Computed example of a mutant assay.
Amino acid sequence: MKRLISLKYVIVSILILIAIWQFAFTISDYSEALFPSPLMALQALVEMIADGTLIASIGASMYRFVIGYGLSVVIAVFLGLILGSLPRVFNYVNPTLQLLRPISPTAWMPFVVLLFGIGDLPAIVIIFIAAFFPVLLSTVSAVSKIDDIYFRVSDNFGIKQPALMWKVILPAAFPQIANAIHLALGSAWIFLVAGEMVGAQSGLGYQIIDARNNIRADILLATILVIGLIGLLLDFLIGLAEKRILKAWGGES
């Protein structure tokens, strides 16, 4: 599992990004209305915090993300553990998974909106799809690669299903599953924003579209920065959770 990013590196990296942004603004011939400076974006951020729109947008987006991503991970890991333990069944299921996996979640968006309309559900479905296949297939792969010695020892101690699944298979496969969960987090967060641009009337993705329609590039860039910072925070939190689980199961500390 990858190491958690040091706060020092995060701060320095963000400062470098802001410096490049300011330099580009200084030498650019674009109007400030189209390409605002970091200070203008910061002022827009303060404005959104003051009028409550930013908090409302973050709340709406996080609600959809937690439900969509959480359900996707739980269901994908559960099915992956079962299919990984039943390779003959997986051989029949795998072709269908490989057919659906390369389809971009945004390709499903028009169909999802037609089925469920505008609101929370389309974005939740898109998040679910974005995270589901990577976690499912990685879980199946992780289970299939477990050393046979785990099963021989379990058999000697009389450990049978379902205890075998939760006490042996899941802990042994978890490091690879954790990597997939980590990667799926970024994908799900990206497609949340994309889904909100089409199928929602609130949230950070909708706020970007609204700022574009009102020619408020300062709000648009401020919202993009907030999306990136939240993604970074989510990545850190899930990395911390994975590290503690691995430590509890005797993995890397």
Rank of each mutant, 00 (worst) to 15 (best):
T53W: 00
D218C: 02
K2S: 11
V135M: 08
G205H: 06
V140A: 10
F128W: 03
L86A: 12
P36A: 06
G52W: 08
A184T: 05
A19M: 12
I208T: 10
D218V: 02
D155E: 14
I227L: 04
I67Q: 09
I129M: 08
I190N: 05
F78M: 14
V113A: 14
W189A: 02
F157R: 06
L185T: 15
S37K: 12
A24L: 12
S61Y: 02
A131W: 00
M165Y: 09
G84N: 08
L246M: 14
I146F: 09
T106R: 01
A131R: 01
I5T: 14
K8G: 09
Q207D: 07
F236I: 15
G195M: 07
S13V: 10
R244L: 14
I129Y: 02
A172P: 00
A217G: 01
L233F: 14
D148N: 14
R88Q: 03
K247F: 00
P105C: 09
L233G: 11
V198R: 05
G117M: 13
S202G: 04
A131C: 02
I49K: 01
L99S: 12
A107T: 15
I190K: 13
A76N: 05
D155Y: 03
S253T: 14
T26W: 14
S72Q: 10
F151A: 10
F132E: 07
K247A: 10
I27Q: 09
I27Y: 13
V226Q: 04
G228N: 14
D29P: 01
A50L: 09
A142S: 09
G231L: 13
N91A: 13
F128G: 04
P110Q: 11
A222F: 07
Q22I: 00
M1N: 08
F133M: 10
A60S: 11
S202W: 02
F65L: 09
I20A: 11
S28H: 04
K167I: 08
G205Y: 05
F128E: 01
V125Q: 02
E47S: 12
